[in-house]
Nucleic acid binder design. Structure first.
Lengths: 288, 288
DNA sequence: ACTTAAATGTGGGAGTTGCAACATTTACGT
DNA sequence: ACGTAAATGTTGCAACTCCCACATTTAAGT
């Protein structure tokens, strides 16, 4: 009976493993046999349908020992393809957010504090634009908790799903080409769509901020951020202190275009000087 | 120290619990005190950021016993707001898909077989439209496994995320108002956007099919399905046998407009007669 | 203030999982 | 066909989780 089950999966699984091996640039994975790859593809795919799988259940389904499954998800976890958890594995949320296992409790509350600082800038009834990123996800979560009536336009699937669960929030999702690593849509369709909306405020993340302004690493995100900036009466960048002084490929906004910088710590003196000279507002805990 | 942590959460959590209680129509939840509701909101929201939380970790964070957390997630699980798992809880995937715990192993393979039957209708290089639903999610999963080069336009966030993980698939997401219970976008913006594409084939789910044609329960989905049908050279409905004979509010397609019905079992004689008289093609295991 | 019920804590036994060392099987190259 | 190494299975023990019943605390109503 297990044999039958196994064969079915064997025919079903084709070769996503190839992509996976390719992505890992032939390190230790090239040595692995088919059976293993198939199983791992199955695990990964199952994890896209259900957010969590259990070791014991997978073992039963594939007709192998729990130890084998354990080794599989250990390796997959090491490769960053899923998150290990007691008794099983869970899908790694796309969009940059790391599970709590990797973060200390302090960082969790830091994240929430920064997010609430940004939520304080939102007024009841506001229309918003929110872009993709781990900071804006945390912002969306805090905004959902605040139970404010807002309408949000976003290109982030995560933000849509998080904020969409709040009873008084309306979410409009922009169209575009789907980027799986960021769980967001991107492209000219996205930008064109955004131009059709005028909102009270936008809340954006970014990869870096320096004296020359805000910059972004992911190609294609910069254009979206700029489009959102252009349609918003009030502009906000939510950036934790680790972004200070970092410069990335794509230019997003000059210091004068930043509006308000929401952060979890005061900017470095030179950054503070440059931003304040350009008329940017800065907001951070302990007196901003 | 725990006191501090707890207070922070106390201020953060406002009143999504109200919505939750409201949704449950004041059964046993009305009796519950604030503390409990806050904790549960936190759990639910945390689950939107991370796909899995552990009992022990939550207990530590809230400064309560694991037993309390266990009771929380038990109740939340009973209310259908999350999925229980050994050692913790995982987010319930929106869009109708139920975790494996609730389904027998047979139904899992049935689901996969139906999905693969539909995938067999896809040709390398095809452009597709795929709508939202649990059947189309399974289809997207099987399509991702097939490793075919396809371009898919969809209004389902789940389909986008599943298919978007396949290396050779391109996914275009339609815009629109976000419907959280279905994890899909909906509305005139969605329909208008779809009209901008011509595709080789569409794969749609639906709530029911009868002699009068295909019908749908979710308001607003019918228009999207019709738009997708209109833009597709080949038309497919993926429906399991439980949909046979069911009639729902919104009309989607007459028998003559169905194209191909992909199912896991042969339609009932009268349904078969009506469809075949209208020129619909039928596809099911064991000789279609 | 008193009563009552809900909410939470405690403790122990049963079941699950994790881990590591070692045995066995399987797959591949020569 | 043989040898080798990867892959998987097996076993035992420690750690963790679950669940039950009962004790204790907390919150609400009168």
């Amino acid at each position: 009976m297990w044999e039958l089950q196994h064969l079915r999966y064997k025919t079903l699984a084709l070769s996503i493993s190839d992509c996976f091996r390719g992505a890992r640039a032939m390190t230790e994975d090239t040595k692995r046999r088919l059976r293993k790859g198939e199983r791992r593809d199955q695990i990964l795919l199952e994890l896209r349908l259900a957010p969590h799988v259990r070791v014991a259940e997978l073992a039963g389904r594939f007709g192998v020992t729990t130890e084998t499954i354990r080794r599989d998800i250990d390796d997959l976890g090491r490769a960053g393809l899923l998150d290990r958890s007691y008794g099983g594995a869970s899908a790694r949320a796309p969009g940059g957010y790391r599970g709590l296992d990797e973060r200390s409790r302090e960082r969790v509350s830091e994240r929430d504090r920064l997010a609430r600082l940004a939520v304080a800038e939102v007024r009841e009834g506001d229309s918003l634009m929110i872009d993709a990123g781990s900071t804006t996800m945390a912002f969306a979560r805090a905004l959902a908790l605040s139970d404010m009536a807002v309408t949000a336009v976003t290109n982030s699937l995560q933000v849509a799903m998080i904020l969409g669960s709040a009873p008084r929030a309306r979410v409009v999702l922009a169209p575009g080409g789907y980027r799986h690593d960021e769980a967001a849509v991107i492209g000219t369709a996205t930008v064109d769509f955004l131009r059709g909306y005028h909102v009270d405020a936008c809340f954006l993340g970014a990869a870096g901020i320096g004296v020359q302004g805000v910059s972004e690493a992911v190609e294609g995100f910069a254009a979206i951020k700029q489009a959102m900036l252009a349609q918003s009466a009030r502009r906000h960048f939510i950036l934790d202190a680790s972004k200070f002084g970092r410069v990335h490929l794509s230019h997003v906004a000059a210091p004068g275009e930043i509006g308000t910088l929401v952060s979890d710590a005061a900017p470095t003196p030179d950054l503070h000087a440059a931003l304040s000279a350009a008329g940017a507002r800065m907001l951070y805990p302990d007196g901003g």
